[in-house]
C-alpha cells in the first residue's frame, strides 16, 4: 500500500519533473556510453564470424536494435500523445514531441545500415521490398509529425494536432513489423523469438541485446535533455521558470 501514499501525478507536473529529469539525465547518458562501448566491443571482436555472411553481418548489431527502436519509439510517442489528448497533461505532450527526433534518427540509422548491408549481400543498396518501404514510410511519418508541429503557430494547437497525427500513424507499426511474414520478400525474418531456441549463437544474441540496451539508455537521456528544453521554452512565463532564471543569474 506504500504505492497509494505517493502522488504519482506530482511527477507529471513540469515544475517537479524538470529538476528530476536534470538529475536522472547524466546517469542515463553515462550508462548509454558504457553500454555502447561494451556492445560494440562484443559485436566486433568477441562475436564469431558468420560462416555464411562473413564479416559484413556485424552491421546487424546496429541495424536490428535501431530498427526495433524506430518502431518502439513511435508507439511510445503515440501513447504519450494519446495521454496528452485525453488527460490534457502538458508533460506527456512534451514527451511525445521530444521523442520524435530520436525516433527519426533511429529510423534513418536502420535504413542506412540496411543499405550498407544490402550492398554486399543482395548486390544493391536498395530494393523495393515491403519492409524497406514501410520503414521508409515510418521515416516520413516522423518527419510529418515534426513538420506539422513546426508549421502551426499556436503551441497548444500544434501539440494537439501533431498528437492526433501520431495516433493515426500508429497503424503503420504493425504493418512494418509483420510485413516480412505477410509478403514473402527478400528481407529475412526475425532470427530472435521467445518460444523457440534462437537461431543464432548466444554470444551474438548477447551483443545484440547489449546494443539494444545502449540505444535505450541513449534514447532516455536524449529525451530527458530535450524535454527539459521544451519545458523551459513552453513554461517560460510561469513563476517557477522565472524564479529559476533569477537564481541562475
Amino acid at each position: 500500500m506504500a504505492f497509494a501514499g505517493i502522488n504519482w501525478f506530482k511527477y507529471s507536473s513540469p515544475a517537479t519533473f524538470y529538476p528530476l529529469a536534470g538529475k536522472m539525465m547524466p546517469w542515463f547518458a553515462g550508462l548509454a556510453a558504457v553500454l555502447t562501448v561494451i556492445g560494440l566491443y562484443m559485436s566486433f571482436f568477441v562475436a564469431p564470424t558468420d560462416y555464411k555472411q562473413g564479416e559484413a553481418y556485424r552491421i546487424m548489431f546496429i541495424h536490428v536494435p535501431a530498427a526495433w527502436m524506430s518502431m518502439f519509439i513511435y508507439v511510445v510517442m503515440a501513447v504519450y500523445a494519446a495521454m496528452g489528448l485525453i488527460f490534457n497533461t502538458r508533460l506527456s505532450a512534451m514527451m511525445a514531441s521530444s521523442l520524435a527526433p530520436t525516433g527519426a534518427l533511429f529510423t534513418f540509422l536502420a535504413l542506412w545500415t540496411g543499405a550498407l548491408w544490402g550492398k554486399p549481400m543482395w548486390g544493391t543498396w536498395w530494393v523495393w521490398d515491403a519492409r524497406l518501404t514501410t520503414e521508409l514510410i515510418l521515416l516520413f511519418l516522423y518527419i510529418g509529425f515534426m513538420s506539422l508541429e513546426a508549421a502551426i503557430d499556436d503551441p497548444r494547437r500544434a501539440t494537439r494536432a501533431s498528437g492526433l497525427l501520431a495516433i493515426v500513424g500508429v497503424v503503420n507499426v504493425p504493418i512494418i513489423y509483420f510485413s516480412v511474414e505477410w509478403w514473402n520478400t527478400l528481407h529475412q525474418g526475425a532470427s530472435i523469438s521467445l518460444d523457440k531456441a534462437p537461431s543464432m549463437a548466444t554470444i551474438m544474441l548477447a551483443s545484440m541485446l547489449v546494443m539494444t540496451l545502449a540505444f535505450w539508455m541513449y534514447t532516455i537521456a536524449m529525451v530527458l535533455y530535450r524535454v527539459r528544453c521544451e519545458i523551459l521554452e513552453r513554461e517560460r512565463h510561469s513563476e517557477w521558470v522565472v524564479a529559476l532564471m533569477e537564481e541562475r543569474k
Binding site: L141, G144, A151, A161, I175
Partner: peptide, 23 residues
C-alpha cells in the same frame, strides 16, 4: 482537417497523407 488554416498547408498535407496512402 489537421492542416486547416496552417501556412503552407497544401504542401504539408501531402507530406502527412501520402505515407498513409501507400497501402
Amino acid at each position: 482537417a489537421l492542416t486547416l488554416g496552417v501556412r503552407g498547408g497544401g504542401v504539408l498535407v501531402s507530406l502527412l497523407v501520402l505515407p498513409l496512402y501507400i497501402p
